[in-house]
Simulated scan of single mutants.
Amino acid sequence: MPLRKERSSAKFIIVAKFLTSKALNIDAIIRTFNPLWHTINGFKARSVGDDVILFVFDDEEKVEKIFRGKPWSFDKHLVVLKKYEKHSPVYTLSFSKVFIWVQIHDIPVRFRNKKVAEDLGTVIGEVAKTTKLAEMEGGSFIRIQVRIDITLPLCQGKIIALEEGSEDWVKFKFERLPNIFYCVGVSITVTRTATYGLIAMVPSMIRSMVFGFMPHLLQIHGGR
């Protein structure tokens, strides 16, 4: 039987994957997110299994605002959100990527601009090109929003090569990461520093997986 668009629900749906080994309590989830999302008409939530929850809204603008505020977490565990477009079964959705704010430290002052920051960000993942300049300014650092693959190791930093032949190291610090982060199929416990850096409370072998990086050179040219 053909199903046409006009027969679908007019509701706006967020599909949320809770990266936790704990059993989910719908009532606790609603109590947690209702005051955070400030919805006028509230929302409905129901489990579809495999730690996936559907959040149903009447207001599309509220859904957009929730996505602008991500990443979200519940009980210190990462929650991966996706918009449900109503044309695919929920079980076919992938929850391997999330947008994270990343601070880039120690860029030479004359190169501390949006273009250089975006070039550096490609080392980590897909850079959000819509980030406003005012959101990027961080005083001693510059910040960008990057879509990262949470199944891959996090990149700790990057070697940059300057025109005069010298090299520098720039550091990446990830903002608002939850205490439990999934990497290479392994659940690891981490804690945040005052500057949003990460310290993995795991054996050194797993630590190297999490903070692993390939120190490829990024050539920085003057006048950018």
Rank of each mutant, 00 (worst) to 15 (best):
A45P: 03
F57I: 00
R31Q: 14
E163C: 01
R112Q: 15
I40M: 09
A16W: 03
E6Y: 09
F12N: 14
F141S: 15
A161M: 05
F55C: 09
A200K: 07
V80E: 03
T92W: 03
R68M: 13
Q145V: 15
H38F: 05
V63Y: 01
H216K: 09
T193G: 14
M136Y: 00
P2G: 05
W169A: 06
S88C: 12
I150F: 03
L19N: 09
H221M: 09
V123R: 10
A161P: 03
F43D: 06
D75K: 12
R192M: 14
F67Y: 06
F43H: 10
R112C: 14
E164L: 03
G197R: 04
L162M: 11
V127W: 01
W37M: 06
G69R: 13
L120F: 00
H87T: 14
K44G: 13
S204T: 04
I107S: 01
Y182I: 04
G157L: 03
W72D: 08
D168N: 13
P178M: 05
P108N: 02
D50A: 11
H221C: 07
A16T: 02
M136G: 04
W37N: 08
N34Q: 11
G49Q: 04
A10C: 12
I148N: 04
M201G: 07
T195V: 13
S88H: 07
I30P: 02
K5H: 05
L24W: 11
V52W: 02
F33L: 08
G212R: 09
Q145N: 12
C155G: 08
H77I: 03
K11F: 14
D59G: 09
I53G: 01
R192I: 02
W37E: 07
N41R: 15
S166W: 01
E60L: 13
L152T: 02
V52K: 04
T39D: 01
M136W: 02
K173Q: 15
W101K: 11
S187E: 11
F211Y: 01
T92R: 14
I159D: 01
R68F: 06
S187L: 14
I40L: 12
V52P: 00
R176L: 00
I26V: 15
V146I: 03
M209G: 04
S140W: 09
K11N: 14
